[in-house]
Write a protein that binds this DNA or RNA. Structure first.
Lengths: 108, 108
DNA sequence: CGGATATAAAACCACTTGGTTATGGAACCG
DNA sequence: CGGTTCCATAACCAAGTGGTTTTATATCCG
């Protein structure tokens, strides 16, 4: 668990606005492929490809409902991504503190 | 600020283990290109390319010290990435709660 | 059965990515 | 000056990405 390639796939999946929008939509509830494709100005196969990327990254699971393949959000891989980022929280907070200190120095 | 393309670049930059390792190294302090390249079994231009990706994502800044170009970590873009992920924290916590509830149901 | 709907798969294209080797340029050192 | 060190750039390559259109497959519905 937590292998480097899992982080690779997770971050790569998140690096596309269409896929992030799909995840946002799925956060409001499961949806079929055509439902997910509707808001986008692209063909259905393009959305299917994005879904395959999300599926390989473990971020969506697909069920069966007659002809439909309802998609379900699996947020768990985002946990590992967040954990990785958390290791840097001190660094961006540090830069804000530095900026704070600088501003305080400039306005005594 | 917080444009979608910023998130794109940040997540894309993080989707490579070499670049994550470079960031981890920079978290311990600034470093030159050759210092950064040393641990990797790849050529110097390859590392330079990774640095350019990190630079375009705003994750590193480069200075000047004679022939050297010291690299400095800029963690601030990670803040936006973390903020985006935070919107899903409830979802993975929910699945853990669901698993918890299931386990409790199975072991009365 | 036959048609419609939902989705996947295939073939193709332009572009990007991650790597290589070879070359070039800037700044130090003797 | 001349050599060396540090780094970037260029040209190239294989593989992946993001999109397309077209075709195939599966399931419902009448």
């Amino acid at each position: 668990m937590g292998t480097s390639s899992t982080l690779d796939a997770t971050f790569a999946a998140l690096a596309d606005p269409t896929r992030r929008a799909i995840l946002a939509r799925l956060a409001t509830g499961d949806a079929t492929v055509t439902e997910l494709a509707a808001p986008f100005a692209m063909s259905q196969p393009a959305v299917s490809k994005h879904l395959r990327v999300l599926e390989r990254a473990g971020l969506v699971q697909r069920g069966r409902d007659a002809q439909r393949r309802p998609c379900h959000l699996v947020a768990e891989p985002l946990k590992a991504a967040t954990a990785w980022l958390a290791g840097y929280r001190d660094y961006w907070e540090a830069s804000y503190r530095q900026l704070d200190d600088l501003l305080k120095d400039l306005q005594p």
